[in-house]
Design a protein around this nucleic acid. Structure first.
Lengths: 207, 207, 207, 207
DNA sequence: AATGAATGAGGGTTCATTCAT
DNA sequence: GATGAATGAACCCTCATTCAT
């Protein structure tokens, strides 16, 4: 019953993915992964140097894609002179669209990366995402509320909170749902809710 | 070097609070707590019967207060005939106000209770909170969007998502901030954002 | 040096049996068992779920046999109308014979079950045995010494003492000897001694 | 609230005696003894070097008395030319009487010494007692059953078993009863039972 | 003389990782 | 390649003993 190396490696990846999704990085058990893959624990170490290594090999690609998306978005935000509110919301939409794209390709990996990577080297990825969104929202706020000066502390904090909340909310939707259409619908609704709220807030402040 | 008992107990509580906040209940290590408190692991057991007991003694009081708040709110939701949108938002405000009150007294404990209690007896508290808010939002949606029939699946999911997001967002604010006034401000802003969004959504749907 | 699984399991059982016999259930040390078995403590848990599980797997079978014997004997004692002295002595002989049978198969286990199981789920087995024998002897005494009334307190105590002594004596023989024939001989002698003594006591009392 | 040294030492002794009787040497807890004595654990070590030392100081005196009794009895057995059955039974009675005497003075200590000293230096005392009784019974058997030759192995074993059983039975009576008169009655009955049995056995063998 | 907080070695147990087969 | 038994460090916890006060 000889199994080709790639088949085995694949079955390990699959089993590991399921285990990481179920228990998160820290509580995932190598033994359970081996069992689910139909092999022995020791054999995993012929394919992966360590639990960390296995996790990395599964999650790294999507983390890289996400990082790349973030990099591009950040560049746009940094380099483009976008003062109009709609421009910024566009960028938010683009971030959202990118996440949706990644999700369609690798929903499990993305969920793990964003929600279940505590204790691994990717624990900070979510924060990077938040930082980016924060930057965008800060600019929106500055442009609209303090075009010539400094954003009041209150609004700075508010921007940060909204950024955190938006990203975490998307993560929660990913955590709680599997169906792509449902997720898209809920994220749309969420973004609508946030954008409406933000617009109203700005209107109110400008009044 | 002999230290007074209360000092030691206090330093254990402090160290434990930090450790629980850093690693959560399950991954918190008694040895690390002991190290941080400047004593040996065994000595902790002169002050607390077990890891569980230590956690409970730190978190129980605030959990009890929170449970009491939930109980009262649930009673109101169940018993009162409140069909007006404003009634429901009032209840949301009350929940918020209660949380703020608890927070002012014990921010770290509340964070641990809501975000880091996995594996302990308090693991379900956040979910209870979400369930309550979900119930309220569902009633608002039903009253406004489908007063005579059943809420569409789409709006059911939406209500659940919003409930989850609201509570988790408040938890995030608690996690990220220590100053009471800042927290109050941010939560107010968040609730305003959500309520505005919800109102607009309803208006849109009714149009 | 890789050893076959069964060999290791066997060596654990052997080491555990020796350790339990030497120190009893409570004071037996997993680390010592591991040392004696030539392995590490953690490895024991590949073969047995817990100290309890290890003890049970060693002792349970013989406990079940013993319990079954007790059950049958108790039924006979309860249901049969046996007023003759000889009937009762017959039952004692039967209990004895059953114990001998069990012993031939598993002397060490029986010793542990009866003498060294404090703290385990089997702690009460010896007392059950004593209670059964006590019941029988009480009936003999009542039938012979107070056929129409109540047995004097003195004889009640005496019956209890003799029951305890008989069972404990058998346990001692089991503890001190390994050879089946020797044990059978000694128990026979012991029962003869007790039965003779009891008969004489009764004759004396009736005179 | 200065307490005289002797009072404290006394209260420790009293508390320790109760604890040792309740849990035996091994499982007795220094902390519980301290609590029961109304002092702190550390203070015990001003009066006793160790748990062992405390146990020794309580049990040693009675162990010495017992040893002395044994020594004298052994001398009699060794030096006296006693061929008659009755002489030997007399010695058995004397051993019994000595034990009873010791018991009347220090029932708790004797019970502990004989039944609850596992793990201490006195664990073997009971065996010494058994050895002495064994010697006596062996001589009786030899004199009666093989006056000119060697006692058959069967009877040697039998003698040992009877010796063991007699002593352990007395220990059981001490363990189960507190009232001096009851104990005396039961031991008498036991000795009568044994002696009758032994006599009958000899008669039977000689027939 | 007394305290009682603190220690440290040991208890049972788990699990990622290694390695002889 | 693959096995899976074995390891070793870590987990929470207990308790006789010590020692600064």
């Amino acid at each position: 019953m000889q199994i080709l190396k790639d088949e085995v490696k694949n079955s390990i990846r699959q089993a590991a993915l399921a285990e990481f999704k179920k228990h998160g990085y820290l509580k995932a058990s190598i033994r359970q992964i081996a069992d689910a893959a139909g092999i022995t624990p020791g054999n995993i170490y012929r394919y992966f140097k360590s639990k960390d290594d296995l996790f990395d090999e599964l999650i790294q690609p999507i983390q890289e894609q996400l990082t790349e998306v973030l990099r591009v978005c950040k560049q746009e935000v940094d380099n483009t002179l976008c003062t109009a509110l709609s421009d910024h919301l566009l960028i938010l939409r683009r971030i959202d669209a990118s996440l949706m794209l990644l999700f369609k390709e690798s929903s499990t990996e993305l969920t793990i990366l964003l929600n279940l990577s505590e204790g691994s080297q990717f624990a900070s990825v979510k924060q990077d995402l938040i930082t980016l969104v924060h930057q965008i929202i800060s600019e929106v706020f500055t442009a609209e509320l303090a075009p010539t000066g400094t954003l009041p502390l209150r609004d700075q904090l508010s921007a940060r909170m909204i950024a955190t909340t938006m990203i975490e909310s998307i993560c929660l939707i990913l955590r709680d749902h599997e169906d792509g259409d449902t997720i898209k619908m809920l994220v749309d609704e969420l973004l609508y809710l946030f954008c409406t709220g933000i617009s109203e807030k700005i209107k109110l402040a400008q009044a």
